[in-house]
Write a protein that binds this DNA or RNA. Structure first.
Length: 296
DNA sequence: TTGCAGGGGTCAA
DNA sequence: TTGACCCCTGCA
């Protein structure tokens, strides 16, 4: 056993066991709308492909288990991916300043914002436009299977999300096999722009959230909402408040008590939640969607 | 069984 | 500011 950043980490056969993990609930993390490649297994654990690896993740009473990982994998990959260096209890305490947020936080108490690969996040959220989650998952899986590297886990085949060059070298016609519909054109064009560094994804973290959003919006298929999602779910910026129809509905019903414009909601969030806007958005979105808040 | 509306938005007119 | 857009699912 070793100690790493306050966690006890044990490697056992094909897995790592991490003790002293708080504010971690797989259902909340994987089903709060930030990721599309984690599938719930019969035993309640989740198996997913991320950062070129396949692992199975489960959690019980402070103990996190990651199957198909070593201690080195934990330190170099999963510690960061699961944002384990951040104390979510502090964030929750700061955000729980009204009854609405208290309820939302209680409901999604185990949410953590994953630090996902920004390229994969970009393409995934271009696909999300005017689309449903099961469909988005199918398209991302299909693109990975067609263009990504095969990975074997538990004698099953999985596929890593493809590198930029792979998609940039594809034709729109071939991409359409993945059922992305009208978004395939955006994917093809965006891939070329990213490959040629017309937009440098690595430079975004050094910009303000506003500038980073504007930079991303240069890409076809990327508007404000998709840009905010990309920035938040890649762990690049946390002071953004992705406002989709669900967030709009929950904000209108619970805070505004009337219809509100996107701009009003964005301005309100920036003032009210400040640097923690992104975290607030996740708790609110998950709460709204799971409880169908604002649906007539 | 067939038909139709609409979805975690973006783009173009 | 408004409608079209691929494809799929849910519901008449």
């Amino acid at each position: 056993m070793i100690e790493y950043r306050g966690y006890n980490v044990i490697e056992k056969n094909d897995r790592v066991i991490v003790e002293n993990v708080r504010d971690f609930e797989p259902v909340h993390i994987f089903e709060c709308g930030q990721c599309f490649r984690w599938l719930k297994q019969d035993d309640g654990s989740y198996t997913g492909v991320a950062l070129g690896k396949v692992v199975n993740v489960s959690y019980d009473n402070g103990t996190l288990q990651i199957i198909n990982a070593t201690v080195n994998d934990f330190i170099n990959t999963w510690f960061g991916y699961f944002d384990l260096g951040r104390d979510y209890s502090v964030i929750k305490q700061q955000l729980a300043k009204d009854n609405i947020m208290k309820k939302a936080i209680e409901f999604g108490h185990g949410i953590r914002i994953l630090k996902q690969d920004i390229w994969e996040t970009l393409i995934s959220f271009i696909i999300s436009a005017n689309n449903r989650i099961p469909m988005i998952m199918k398209v991302v899986a299909s693109i990975s299977e067609m263009y990504g590297e095969e990975i074997i886990f538990d004698s099953k085949k999985y596929y890593a999300f493809p590198a930029v060059d792979k998609l940039a070298g594809s034709s729109v016609e071939k991409l359409k096999v993945c059922k992305g519909g009208f978004r395939c054109k955006y994917i093809a064009e965006t891939s070329v722009l990213v490959r040629d560094k017309a937009v440098d994804l690595n430079a975004l973290s050094g910009m303000s959230a506003d500038d980073a959003r504007k930079e991303l919006a240069k890409l076809p298929g990327v508007g404000n909402k998709v840009a905010d999602c990309v920035l938040l779910y890649s762990g690049t910026k946390y002071d953004v408040f992705p406002t989709d129809v669900w967030v709009k509905r929950v904000m209108e019903e619970l805070y505004f008590k009337r219809e509100a414009t996107f701009k009003e909601i964005q301005d309100f969030a920036r003032k009210y939640f400040g640097e923690l806007s992104g975290f607030a958005q996740q708790y609110l979105f998950y709460y709204a969607r799971e409880n169908k808040i604002g649906l007539k």
